[in-house]
Amino acid sequence: MEAKADENKYSIIIPTYNERLNIALIVYLIFKHLPNVNFEIIVVDDGSPDGTQDIVKQLQEVYGEDRILLRPRAKKLGLGTAYVHGLKHATGNFVVIMDADLSHHPKYLPSFIKKQMETGSSIVTGTRYVKGGGVHGWNLMRKLTSRGANVLAQTFLWPGVSDLTGSFRLYKKSVLEDIISSCVSKGYVFQMEMIVRASRKGYHIEEVPITFVDRVYGSSKLGGSEIVEYLKGLLYLLVTT
């Protein structure tokens, strides 16, 4: 039995590391674009030295501690486990995962929610590679690696979704709990592993177009050897899923 629309609650998990300014901006934008939705924001901060947590506390003053939950960890432990950590504290029946750096714009949240309601799908994933989607701020090299990675994955993995490494997604909470426990990858590959495992398990996955503007504030946390990591991840998924 599906819960009625107004009984749904969305837990938005945002992992942060040195996102002092971005977290404030994104929280404002989330509240702006989800005026009549029951949601909570769970910020998983890994002891950012720039004082991200101070800003989150200020935001709690403005929006309320019941709407913005700060669930910090002592040190930088990586993205994958940040999601697991946030998920433990989620009280909604749906979970949204998004980056803090404004590459994932909250204005798309209503279309994720709408798509899920229309289709009853278990996962709605944002894709940059369909009509209405797009990327801004990437140089040729980044576009090339992105396309190459995508073609490789589509040719060998047959994942059933068009944008594997994008991480702006809405999950039924039970589904996320189910797949996250079987995922072991780190970083980038983690997003890919989640969606491939979900697809193999036969979960209903829908896509909505999103645009992706490369981060304006703060700095990237993903290191240089991305391509090697990606290829290892691809191989790993080939033999384990």
Binding site: A24, L25, G134, H136, R147, V151, V213
Partner: peptide, 26 residues
């Protein structure tokens, strides 16, 4: 496929401008 993908790489320069406006507002 990579070549075609590159040629038709969807871009959204307008979104960057909209984002700047959102940032100012926020």
């Amino acid at each position: 496929m990579v070549g075609v993908g590159l040629m038709h790489f969807p871009t959204c320069p307008h979104e960057a401008i909209l984002l700047q406006q959102d940032v100012v507002e926020a």
